[in-house]
Amino acid sequence: MYGKKVKLRFLFVSLILITLILSIFLILKSLEENVVYFQSPTKIKETSEIQRKKMRIGGMVKENSISINSNEIVFVITDFKNEINVTYSGIVPNLFEEGKGVVAEGYLKDRNFFIASKILAKHDENYMPPEVKAALGKE
């Protein structure tokens, strides 16, 4: 049917592809710690020692946890298993609110306290007009 050259080229391309997929998979698997954009509070609880380097923690802002003092804002990030207290002074994004996703960048003080130098709001995958949201809320 096809010539020998065609078969060889097909084999060549297939082998390159398989090799690449396997090696990229292995590289990404071993780099998982660095590929994730943020750690969850549970992950922080599980780590044995606290590193003094800049890191990010993400999760939900716990309901009724935001309190604003004179020059700092204190809130709790939760992943519904574990929690971590965050203090931050600065401007928060518009979408930062209780019950919504958040990513805090900064340093760990200890396993329960985190000092953030930057707050990012995380948007979820839901898009809807305000009327629909209001109707959903009533149910």
Partner: peptide, 19 residues
């Protein structure tokens, strides 16, 4: 992975989370 970017809203198999 954990990303700042939100997951896909449109999925062939399930209902889309975009109105």
């Amino acid at each position: 992975w954990n990303t700042l970017h939100q997951p896909a809203s449109i999925n062939i198999l399930s209902k889309s989370s975009i109105h």
